Structure formats: C-alpha cells, structure tokens
Amino acid sequence: MRRTREVDRLRSALDRTARRHTSMPPPQVLVVAPGLELESGGSQPFHAASVGKVMTATLVAMLVEQGRFGVGSPLGKLLPASDLDGLPAAPGVDVRTDVTVEHLLTHTSGIPDFFEPPRGTRTAVSTRTVAAEPDRYWSPTALLDEARRLPARERPGQFRYGDTAFVLLGRVVEEATGEAFTEVLRTRVLEPTGMEGSSTPYSDARVPGDLDGLDVAPFWLGRHELSRALSLSLDWAGGGIVAPPADLVRFQQALHGGRLVSPETLRWMAAPRHRRRRGIHYGAGMVTVRFGEFTPPFLRGLPEPVGGLGHFATHLFYYPRQDAHVVLNFHAYRRMNQSFMTHARIARLLVDV
C-alpha cells in the first residue's frame, strides 16, 4: 500500500513537471522491477546520448573476450598512424605506446575532449559551438582533428571524462573487425538483444535530408533543439543511439543476464574507479550512482545502481539486488538536476522491491 501511494505521488510529480515545462515534452520514465512497472511520458525513441557509451564499452569487452586484443593493448598496435599522429600528449608521453584500451574505457587516456575542451580553449564541435552549424557532418577523422587543436592537460592514468576516447574506441572496433562501427554495433549488440526499434541515425547520416522523418523525441542543447541536426554525428561511437525506453531495458537485461559478456568482465566494467563529481563514479564505460553522497541526508542508504548517463539528462541504470531497470529522458542538460531528483525517488521505491 505504501509503495502504491509513493508511485502515485511520483506520477503526480511527473505530471506537474510536464505542466510547468510546456515548451518541451514531458519526461520519459520507465521502471521495470519484480512487482513494479512504471511508465510515464510515452515510448517514443529518444537520443540516448552518452548512455550509448555503455554499449560501445560492451562491444569492446566482447572483442576482448574473443581475443581480438586486450585491455592493456597499446593504441599503436591497434590503430594506424593516421589516427594517432598529432594527438595531444603530456611531455614524455607517446600516445602510441603509453595509452591503452583500458585508458580509453576509463577516461584516463590524457587525450583532451573535443566536446568539453579544457578551460580557455574551444573547438568547432563543443557544447558551446556545435549548434552554430547544425547541418555539418562530423566524421571520426574530423573529430580527432578537432582534438588535435587542444593542449594535453593530463597524463595517462589521470581521470578526465571525454568523448575523444570513445571515437578512438570506435576506430579500434573497426580495425579489429574490418567493418564499420555502426554495423558491428547493430549485428553484435542491437539485434541480438532485441533492440528492434533502435538505430544510429546521426552516425549513419551524411546530409541533413537523411534525418527527415526520423522518429525521435526532441532534445535541447542550451536554447537549440537538435533532434534533426546532422552535427549530432559528433556522437559517433560515443552515444549516437536512438532507442525507445523498452529497448534500453532489453539491452540491460541481456548485459546483466550474461548474454553479452561474462559476469567477470561485467564486474570489471562496472567497478567504480574515479569520481567525476560527488555521487557519480566511473568504471570502464559504466557509471555508478551513490545517492548517499548527494546533499539531502535522506538519500543515504539507497541502493547504488550501475549504468550510463547522457548529456541530455538521460539515464539507463540497473539495480542488481532489486533486479530493477530504470530509464529516464528529461530532454535537456538544464533538467539534469530534475532527472536525478526523480531517479532518487525511484531508488527509494526500489528499496522495498
């Protein structure tokens, strides 16, 4: 009875959010747990943003398990010189020999991020500039060229979240398989997990017209709505998935059900290594949320889910003890705090599952 009341209160809170923010769609929420299923905001596919990094990391881990390369393999053994030459490196660091697959997965490569570049620098494909050229296509080569313009601020082993590393991981996948990254992702992750409504439209498009008619929920970067922006090709291998909420649950069920990688590999991916900010801890392509580190004291003692976060306030998380899946889409970075408040309420509901 108490849980039913809490679910009703959460639905009411989501309805109030939708009424207050009529300029954008209501938040999309899907919770799937034993004895509890909550859906709100519709089932339209949405741009998962960096939630897609969990899938890229999974694909890389699958190739590692197949013996294609190791997590300790240096990039110079996996990628051609054209990918690596000129990438920024700290003094005395050689990207070819000193940066490994594990460094890329754990955001510890030391290679700067083109999307959120170091303070005082800028690229043409950053959070502040990408909306200025919405019809521009960004190839992996062009993205790496933007990273080449930046100074190196960290050494391998030092944590700094970024997208450049996942462009390189996408190239590692291509070189290891001889196939396009999006094709490998489709045949080895999306199709085997039953993600029939999912696609990689921003990575596959080459001209703006390729995105005409795309079924995707709107999303905003600052004041700019970008659901038809070709410039979102910047998310190649780092989060270009468009998926309905139920498909994302299917992916997690396959991942945590042992159908993609071994339990040992999954534990290695999920193990927190570095704190990005209070409550947000990164492993190898996955994120752990520790609600107890957030400011309200009543959040202490909540379960700690593992999964992925996206820039547009997208969440995909699994609660191991509760066998529960949570998917959220709040459509814009400026609603990130709201998304976490909602997620915390869901975590409190799941304590009783």
Score class of each variant (00 low, 15 high):
residue 268 W to S: 03
residue 327 V to F: 07
residue 260 L to I: 12
residue 134 P to S: 08
residue 298 F to A: 09
residue 149 R to I: 07
residue 148 R to H: 13
residue 281 H to F: 12
residue 169 L to W: 11
residue 109 S to L: 12
residue 105 L to N: 03
residue 67 G to Q: 01
residue 131 A to V: 01
residue 98 D to P: 13
residue 335 R to D: 09
residue 66 Q to I: 02
residue 261 V to L: 08
residue 59 L to Q: 00
residue 230 L to K: 08
residue 56 T to G: 06
residue 247 D to A: 05
residue 31 V to P: 00
residue 320 P to A: 12
residue 316 L to K: 06
residue 187 T to Q: 14
residue 263 P to V: 13
residue 327 V to S: 04
residue 63 L to Y: 08
residue 206 R to Q: 14
residue 186 R to H: 15
residue 181 F to S: 00
residue 308 G to V: 04
residue 283 G to D: 04
residue 196 E to N: 11
residue 79 L to W: 06
residue 195 M to G: 05
residue 333 Y to P: 03
residue 200 T to N: 11
residue 84 L to E: 14
residue 214 L to K: 01
residue 84 L to H: 07
residue 171 R to I: 11
residue 27 P to A: 01
residue 299 L to F: 08
residue 166 F to R: 02
residue 264 E to Y: 00
residue 306 V to K: 10
residue 263 P to W: 15
residue 345 R to D: 06
residue 104 L to C: 07
residue 75 L to E: 14
residue 143 L to Y: 13
residue 314 T to F: 02
residue 173 V to M: 05
residue 197 G to P: 01
residue 16 R to W: 04
residue 353 V to T: 03
residue 156 P to F: 14
residue 151 P to I: 09
residue 137 Y to Q: 12
residue 277 R to F: 08
residue 179 E to Q: 14
residue 226 L to I: 00
residue 205 A to L: 13
residue 285 G to C: 10
residue 77 K to C: 02
residue 181 F to G: 03
residue 32 V to S: 06
residue 231 S to F: 13
residue 150 L to D: 08
residue 298 F to E: 02
residue 81 A to H: 15
residue 186 R to P: 10
residue 307 G to K: 01
residue 37 E to T: 09
residue 348 R to P: 04
residue 278 R to Y: 06
residue 294 F to A: 00
residue 154 E to K: 09
residue 80 P to M: 12
residue 48 A to V: 11
residue 179 E to D: 12
residue 180 A to E: 15
residue 196 E to F: 11
residue 105 L to G: 05
residue 220 W to G: 02
residue 191 E to C: 00
residue 128 R to F: 11
residue 203 S to G: 06
residue 279 G to M: 04
residue 89 A to D: 14
residue 344 A to L: 06
residue 312 F to L: 06
residue 198 S to L: 10
residue 5 R to K: 11
residue 302 L to C: 02
residue 105 L to R: 00
residue 89 A to N: 13
residue 277 R to A: 00
residue 234 L to V: 14
residue 123 T to N: 12
residue 108 T to S: 09
residue 309 L to P: 05
residue 77 K to F: 09
residue 86 G to N: 01
residue 246 A to C: 03
residue 251 F to Q: 01
residue 99 V to L: 12
residue 261 V to T: 07
residue 334 R to V: 13
residue 109 S to K: 10
residue 256 H to P: 10
residue 234 L to E: 10
residue 179 E to V: 09
residue 123 T to G: 11
residue 7 V to K: 02
residue 68 R to M: 05
residue 173 V to W: 07
residue 10 L to S: 01
residue 192 P to T: 08
residue 16 R to V: 03
residue 182 T to K: 06
residue 81 A to R: 15
residue 72 G to I: 05
residue 34 P to R: 10
residue 81 A to G: 11
residue 339 S to K: 03
residue 267 R to V: 10
residue 291 F to Y: 13
residue 188 R to L: 09
residue 330 F to A: 08
residue 129 T to I: 03
residue 28 Q to E: 14
residue 169 L to S: 07
residue 163 D to I: 07
residue 277 R to S: 05
residue 210 D to L: 05
residue 314 T to V: 07
residue 312 F to M: 06
residue 24 M to Y: 15
residue 345 R to A: 06
residue 317 F to L: 04
residue 15 D to I: 05
residue 255 L to Q: 04
residue 92 G to H: 00
residue 9 R to W: 04
residue 19 R to W: 05
residue 84 L to A: 10
residue 247 D to Y: 09
